[in-house]
Amino acid sequence: MKHPKVINLVQEPEVFYRIQNKYDRIISVLGGSMQVGQVVNSDIDLIDITRRGLPKSVVITVSLILGISMEKMSSLLHVSHRTIQRKGDDELLNVYSTEQILEIAEVISRGIEVLGTLENFTKWLHSDVRALNYSKPLDYLDTSFGTKLVKDILGRIEHGVYS
């Protein structure tokens, strides 16, 4: 089966909205399958990527999408900004940073799906949300529990539950 070309969200955001496959959307957030180093069709593929590591360039891509500095991105990954700076663009992140990036990419994909556009999602991400005790969803993207909580809130929004 021929796999469709995955679009890079940063380069062509309007095309992203037409991508139906969950994995293609996540890979698009990360900069495309060339950036990630493989095509992704299942959670098993995501596990393989996590074990292998993602390149540092993906961190830059995700920080641009989120509209945050590399310092803030480093704090979401629990890695010093200096450590990230020292890495070459093709140098691979460790398992923990890679897993967190993949979880953040899933939140981005889900947020765009629920809120309609990248602009709407990033505006929401940087706003105080009642369900988070008037904290910003962005501040919860540094842990697995936090990303799950943000995805749960997006699910409630999708179903019309006041959040």
Rank of each mutant, 00 (worst) to 15 (best):
K148L: 01
D128K: 15
R18A: 07
I104L: 08
I65A: 08
N21I: 05
V150K: 01
L118I: 12
H126E: 03
L149A: 04
D128G: 05
I68N: 02
R18T: 14
E91L: 12
W124I: 09
D90C: 08
G53T: 10
L125T: 03
V40P: 12
N120R: 14
K72G: 00
L66R: 11
A131I: 09
V79A: 07
F121H: 02
L64T: 09
F121E: 00
Y96G: 11
L66T: 01
G31W: 09
T50S: 12
Q11G: 07
Q35T: 15
M1Y: 02
I112T: 03
S97Q: 09
N133S: 14
G155F: 15
S74K: 04
G116R: 08
I49F: 09
L54F: 07
Q20S: 11
Q38K: 12
E158L: 15
V150T: 11
L46W: 10
I7T: 11
M34A: 13
S144Y: 12
S80W: 05
E106R: 12
F145G: 03
Q11T: 03
E113R: 10
R130Q: 00
S135C: 13
R52M: 09
L64E: 07
V15W: 09
D45R: 08
F16T: 00
S69G: 05
R86L: 04
D128H: 15
N94H: 09
R52C: 14
V95M: 08
I153T: 01
T122M: 02
I65R: 08
K136D: 00
I27H: 04
I60F: 13
K56A: 04
N120W: 06
L138D: 01
G155D: 08
L30K: 15
R52Q: 12
Y96R: 12
K87C: 03
S97N: 06
D142Y: 12
V29I: 14
S75N: 05
I65W: 07
Y96V: 14
G32P: 04
L66S: 07
V40C: 14
Q100M: 14
I65T: 10
Y96N: 14
R156L: 06
L64C: 04
Q11W: 01
V62I: 13
L46R: 08
V62C: 00
P13W: 09
G160K: 13
T117Y: 12
V10S: 11
L93M: 06
S127T: 03
V114M: 01
S135N: 14
G111E: 02
Q85S: 14
Q38M: 14
R18K: 10
E12W: 12
L125M: 09
G111D: 04
K56I: 12
S69F: 09
S127L: 02
V59D: 02
K87P: 00
G155K: 15
E119W: 03
G53Q: 09
I49D: 10
F121V: 05
L9W: 00
E91Y: 08
N8E: 01
S42P: 07
Y134V: 03
R156W: 01
D152P: 00
G155H: 13
D43M: 02
S74D: 05
M73H: 07
E158K: 15
